[in-house]
Simulated assay, not measured.
Amino acid sequence: MSVPTVSSEGRYRLVGSTASPYALKMRAILRYRRIPFDWVIMTPALRAETAHLKPNLIPALRYPDGTWRGETTTLAHDLETRHRERSIIPEDPALAFLCDLLEDMADEWAVKPLFLYRWWDPEDQDYVSRWAAEEWSVFEEEAGSEAEREAMRRRQISRMPILGATAENKPLLEESYRRMLAAIEPHVGLNRFFFGTRPSLADFAWYGQLNEMATDPTPMRIMRAIAPKTDIWARRLDDTSGVDGEWWPLDKVLAGAAGDLLALAGELYLPFLAANEKAFNGGLERLRITVWGLDYALAPFKYQVKCLTTLRDRFCALGAPDRSRLEPVLRRTGCWPILAGEGA
């Protein structure tokens, strides 16, 4: 099979699947920023062409010069240096940091209930495996075939303990999903986003996860029952190329979804990252946390140690005035000690 080439000079080529929250995130960013690109579903030939990327995951972005790059956070920030128009990073450094924190929470935590719901119940397993088998060619079987569908189902179910989708962790993952929806639901609407009347990198990260959960059977029913505005908002973010808007000041941002999600970061996400770091650095087999009276245990991951280090580095890189502006809310939400490395 021949590999598609860049269709015209100056265009990017985004390779992914609509079953991937990270591919949807990247596609929505490119659409909003009006950066010329072609959307291509992953094929075995394209997977071979991107094999040098480590890890070789979707999405992969082919630049106009023919080079391939991956990892959506890195890609989003790199595109900021190459394309000035319609930035997705707030101009205020304090807000830019909060945007990074909320993006990271979407990428590294919101995906956990998504993975649990996708592969826990037979109804969801059947739905998602059929969908992914059509678009996510990682096996030798014919794309979309019953054999590939079953191979996908078995592969993902086998990864559930590795990614923490276990009976022990299920209550906390389900509760965190409900609390994430409760944080977002009162604040979103037509042209109302986390940091203003224009979408940010954090909005697109949450969109990627929420759009998948607005589609998969079990989390879809939950979302439509308790967060109907979020359900519509997540779908709208698929293409915001026609949206223009402004960034809000810090006080208005904190009164909205970003403020409520920041509280969840202090209660759940940053304690998880801190426990992961402590377990990894201490050579422990498992990290353990209890949040809202619910237990969570998982083998520590090196990548999420990097996530916490990056957040701390970005926090420390803020000027003293910006850290001072953020200190009251970060202390109130419990984020400050972990970000500042107090007691680490």
Results as ranks from 00 to 15, higher is better:
Phe194Asp: 03
Val329Gly: 03
Arg86Val: 03
Ser129Met: 05
Pro21His: 13
Tyr303Trp: 13
Val111Tyr: 13
Asp295Pro: 13
Tyr127Ser: 07
Asp260Trp: 06
Ser137Thr: 15
Glu285Gln: 11
Trp109Gln: 07
Trp247Lys: 05
Glu91Ala: 15
Asp65Gln: 03
Trp136Leu: 10
Pro59Ser: 09
Leu262Gln: 12
Asn281Gly: 08
Gly208Gln: 01
Pro161Met: 08
Ala132Val: 03
Leu326Lys: 06
Arg179Lys: 15
Asp295Leu: 08
Met105Phe: 10
Leu57Gln: 11
Lys170Gly: 12
Arg33Leu: 06
Trp120Pro: 04
Arg13Met: 15
Gly245Pro: 00
Glu140Ile: 06
Arg84Trp: 05
Pro93Trp: 01
Arg84Ser: 15
Pro64Gln: 13
Leu173Cys: 01
Glu150Trp: 02
Glu71Lys: 08
Trp39Pro: 02
Glu80Leu: 09
Met213Gly: 02
Arg84Val: 08
Leu57Met: 04
Met213Gln: 11
Asn281Ile: 07
Ile88Tyr: 00
Ser87Leu: 01
Ser17Arg: 01
Leu173Val: 00
Arg331Met: 10
Pro21Met: 03
Asp126Pro: 03
Arg332Asp: 14
Pro4Ala: 12
Asp38Gln: 12
Val291Glu: 08
Arg192Asn: 05
Arg224Thr: 07
Ala60Thr: 06
Thr333Val: 12
Gly283Asp: 11
Leu61Ser: 02
Arg118Gly: 08
Arg192Met: 09
Arg69Tyr: 11
Ser87Ala: 09
Leu30Cys: 06
Gly208Asp: 00
Trp292Ile: 07
Ser158Val: 00
Ile289Phe: 04
Val329Asp: 02
Thr197Pro: 09
Thr215Cys: 05
Pro4His: 10
Gly245Thr: 00
Leu53Ile: 06
Ala106Asn: 05
Asp295Glu: 15
Ala182His: 11
Thr166Asp: 03
Asp216Pro: 03
Leu262Ser: 12
Gly334Gln: 10
Leu163Cys: 10
Glu277Trp: 11
Glu49Met: 07
Val291Trp: 00
Glu140Cys: 01
Glu342Val: 14
Arg331Phe: 12
Cys316Ser: 15
Val243Ser: 01
His83Met: 06
Gly144Val: 00
Gly259His: 00
Ile89Leu: 14
Trp233Met: 04
Lys252Glu: 14
Val6Met: 15
Glu135Phe: 01
Leu30Lys: 01
Glu146Ile: 08
Ala344Ile: 07
Arg118Gln: 00
Arg332Lys: 13
Asp295Thr: 13
Gly189Ser: 09
Arg130Lys: 14
Asp244Tyr: 04
Ser20Leu: 00
Trp119Lys: 05
Thr67Glu: 13
Tyr303Leu: 11
